[in-house]
């Protein structure tokens, strides 16, 4: 029988369009907070990656050089085998 954790990963693999975390929690019938934990588990395992912005927060200029017009929402995607590490600072 497929584990719930595996179902979470499978949802990512089979998605053909962007999904919201809330919708995914409803589809899998798990609490959103538990889904967060399950996604965090797969992120730790290297199967998923959290998409973070181009490192502005960690940059000494604190984003002064970029100031993107919209703050992009937290999102996850399947991690490729050649996944890069943390994106470098946007200031180059």
């Amino acid at each position: 029988m497929m584990t719930v954790l595996r179902q979470v990963l499978q949802t990512f693999e089979q998605a053909s369009a962007p999904l919201s975390l809330a919708q995914m929690a409803r589809d899998l019938q798990v609490e959103p907070a538990i889904l967060d934990d399950m996604i965090a588990y797969w992120v730790r395992k290297g199967k998923l990656r959290e998409v973070t912005e181009a490192g502005c927060d960690s940059c000494g200029l604190k984003g002064d050089c970029c100031s993107p017009i919209v703050k992009l929402p937290r999102r996850y995607e399947l991690a490729a085998d050649d996944a890069p590490g943390k994106p470098p600072c946007c200031c180059g």
Partner: peptide
């Protein structure tokens, strides 16, 4: 691309979030 509505420069840097 949405970031590019503000300024193209951070829009180009925002492509770093893409893996491929």
């Amino acid at each position: 691309m949405l970031v590019g509505f503000g300024c193209t420069v951070p829009g180009i840097y925002a492509t770093r979030t893409l893996e491929n």
